[in-house]
Design a protein around this nucleic acid. Structure first.
Length: 523
DNA sequence: GGATCCGTTGTAGCT
DNA sequence: AAGCTACAACGGATC
């Protein structure tokens, strides 16, 4: 019997999964061993490792994949935590049958690439055939493209268009023709093999049972509050959401434009984003990004739909751009020796400022509402991320972007190494493709609130910053400007019940623009 | 090779 | 009160 280990990393799904499709059609494979290895540093016991919501989302995604493997193939997922080389060694050592293949989905992150290299190195003296599947979590084959002769780092929509044209087969009506694979019908596994792996003593050191994951997930939800874990992890939920947000929302897709959909969450449901909310499913691999692309194509109206870069296709193209850059540019995650990061002299690490920012006590309600939403749910609207990261760096607090990047990385359920670093580089204004440094977001975008009308933004603030729930819309973006009478009536004295602004926003904005300019002069 | 244009999404102040 | 304008002014691509 010929057995293949299928190592799921960024494909926590059975649809559009080239590893499964290959296993189905290959003559060399009789049965599969589906495995997932949780990063050994992903522990709530390790300080600053990973946030509760992020871990929960992963647990739910793994439970869902386990269910899908069971329902469709009668199989199950073996979940481990530990060093991937050791885990895989222990699997191979625990069964008598020959493991003749190891199927790996390609990941471009340094840690993931090193894991795959180590595993390959470890198995080089065996006759195990290692097969890496490219473009599983991206539309483009990242490795192939950056290895092309004369490859140049793209920085604009135009250059991305060209890369898409040169590297993808896209039909005249916009479909990706070389992706989006259906769920295989004939995948086999051997229960006795899986059982003997689980029973093996060496292997059991790393093994986590489904029951354990369920229990951990439940305990974490008790901690966070069930209503706050709004995004349920997993492929089934991802496909439901894809249908609800894209396939059945032609108007939404055709009119998608960032500036028009910037007002955070909906009034009726403060947890529901005004954007697609698909990012956690894409970043964790529960949802194929190729399928998302094709579904957008399916419902779009050729004459009316918005075009890249504003459109949803445009959004996906920027994601690809960040993946290419992050793989190509050395030290992508760093502020030194990074060709995509200008050496700005940020202020010393200011714990008080960083903590106020992280926990949502800056005295700027819009910023605080979004940071509290991130802390509680693991999600924040894209433009909200712009506003808070600009605020922390070149806008107001003049802190190194890496501090904010780390907090995002830990807390966001859609954390994505390439995209997160790329967006921070861009928002901090240090990357070559950045927006100009003198364009500073206003942390109090109150053009409507001065009219004293209820806006989505105002109701969003009231939900996440309950201290201000009685404040009139007119003052809700800058409550410290409200007369004391109104503060009393609103049952919230600024400076006591809610913080005064930790910084003079206009003054710091001006100073920081000057500082940035001075830094550029040094270059 | 110098001028000009453009870049996924700006802000403040005046009328 | 919405809409215009001044501000501030990088750096790469293109002509």
């Amino acid at each position: 019997m010929n057995t293949a280990i299928v190592w799921f990393r960024k494909t926590i799904r059975i649809h559009d999964n080239p590893m499964l499709t290959w296993a189905e059609s290959s003559q060399q494979i009789d049965s599969i061993i589906p495995i997932y290895i949780i990063d050994e540093n992903w522990s709530l016991d390790v300080e600053n490792s990973v946030g509760v919501n992020r871990l929960n989302f992963l647990y739910e995604s793994l439970l869902d994949l386990n269910k899908n493997l069971k329902d469709n193939f009668g199989s199950k997922l073996l979940v481990y935590t530990g060093d991937s080389s050791e885990v895989i060694k222990s699997i191979i050592g625990s069964i008598d049958e020959n493991v003749n293949s190891l199927l790996i989905d390609y990941c471009s992150e340094p840690k993931n690439r090193k894991d795959a290299e180590d595993v390959t190195e470890n198995l080089k003296n065996t006759d195990i055939n290692i097969k890496v599947f490219p473009a599983v979590n991206t539309i483009l084959d990242i490795e192939k493209i950056i290895q092309t002769k004369n490859f140049k780092a793209p920085k604009s929509t135009k250059e991305m268009n060209k890369i898409f044209e040169e590297n993808l087969v896209i039909s005249p009506n916009g479909y990706l023709l070389d992706g989006d694979l259906p769920v295989p019908k004939n995948i086999y596994f051997e229960p006795l093999i899986l059982e003997s792996i689980i029973q093996n003593e060496e292997n059991s050191k790393f093994y986590i049972s489904t029951e354990e994951i369920k229990e951990k997930n439940y305990q974490l939800k008790l901690e966070t509050g069930f209503e706050k874990s709004y995004f349920l992890g997993g492929e089934n939920e991802a496909l439901k959401r894809l249908k609800m947000k894209i396939s059945e929302r032609a108007d939404f897709v055709n009119n998608f434009r960032k500036p028009l959909t910037c007002s955070t969450n909906s009034i009726e449901n403060p947890m529901e984003p005004t954007t697609t909310g698909l990012s956690p499913y894409i970043s964790n691999g529960c949802l194929s990004v190729r399928l998302v692309w094709n579904e957008c194509t399916k419902v779009r109206n050729e004459d009316q739909h918005t075009k890249p870069p504003e459109s949803l296709h445009g959004q996906l193209m920027f994601r690809e751009m960040f993946y290419l850059l992050s793989r190509f540019v050395e030290n992508w995650e760093n502020d030194v020796d990074n060709s995509n990061c200008k050496p700005v002299r940020w202020g010393d690490y200011d714990e008080e400022r960083i903590r106020a920012w992280e926990l949502g006590f800056t005295g700027f309600p819009y910023i605080d509402a979004m940071m509290r939403q991130l802390d509680a749910t693991g999600w924040m609207h894209h433009l909200g991320r712009h506003a808070v990261s600009c605020f922390l760096t070149r806008g107001q607090l003049w802190q190194n972007w890496k501090h904010g990047r780390d907090i995002f990385e830990r807390k966001l359920i859609d954390s994505d190494w390439a995209v997160n670093n790329g967006n921070w580089l861009w928002l901090a204004g240090v990357a070559p493709f950045s927006m100009p440094y003198y364009r500073v977001y206003n942390p109090c975008p109150d053009s409507k609130s001065s009219l004293n009308v209820e806006t989505k933004e105002a109701s969003f603030i009231r939900y996440w910053v309950p201290e201000l729930s009685l404040f009139p819309s007119k003052y809700i973006f800058e409550p410290h400007l409200a007369p004391l009478e109104i503060q009393k009536l609103s049952n919230c004295i600024i400076g006591e019940d809610y913080p005064s602004p930790i910084i003079d926003r206009k003054k710091s904005r001006k100073e920081n623009i000057a500082k940035f300019k001075e830094n550029l002069g040094r270059l």
